[in-house]
Amino acid sequence: MKQKLNQSILTLLLSLVFTLPVMAAQQEAPLPETFAEHKVVLQISDSDPFKQTLVLNVAANLQRYYGASNVDIEIVAFGPGVRLMLQDNVNQPRIQSMIEGGIRFSACSNTLKNFAKKLGEDPLVMPGVNRVPAGAGRILQLNAAGWQLLKP
C-alpha cells in the first residue's frame, strides 16, 4: 500500500516536472491595465502592404478620434502579418512612434518560431514589440476581457 502511494507521488512529481514548462509556455500574456473608455484589438494576419498600412492608419486615426487616454489599442499580428513587426519593415519609424504614443504591438511567438525554421535563424523583431505565445489566443483573450476586435 505504502509502495503504491510512493509510486503515485513519484508519478505526480514527475508529471509536474514535465508539464510545468509546458504550462508556463502556454500561459497567457498579462492583460494590460487601462482605464480607457474604448478598448480595441486590431488583427493583422496578412502580408499585403496595403493592409499593413491600413491597420496602422486605423490605429492612428482611432487614437486621434477618441484621444489617447480614451482608447486602448493593441495590434496583434500572426501568420504573414508578423512581417509588419519585423525589424527594418518600411513602417518601422511610424511603428516606433506609435509605440511611444501608447499603442501596443504584439507578435505571435508560434509564427516567429515558424519563421525561424524557414529562415534558419531567429527573425529580428522591432524593439518595443511584445511577443505573445499565440497571436490568435491573444486576440481571444483580449476580446473576452472587453476589447473589441477589428480586422481592417
Partner: peptide
Amino acid sequence: QLKKTALLIALAGA
C-alpha cells in the same frame, strides 16, 4: 458604432 467609425476612418486612411 465603433466598427462603423473605424471602417470610415480606415477607408479615409486608405
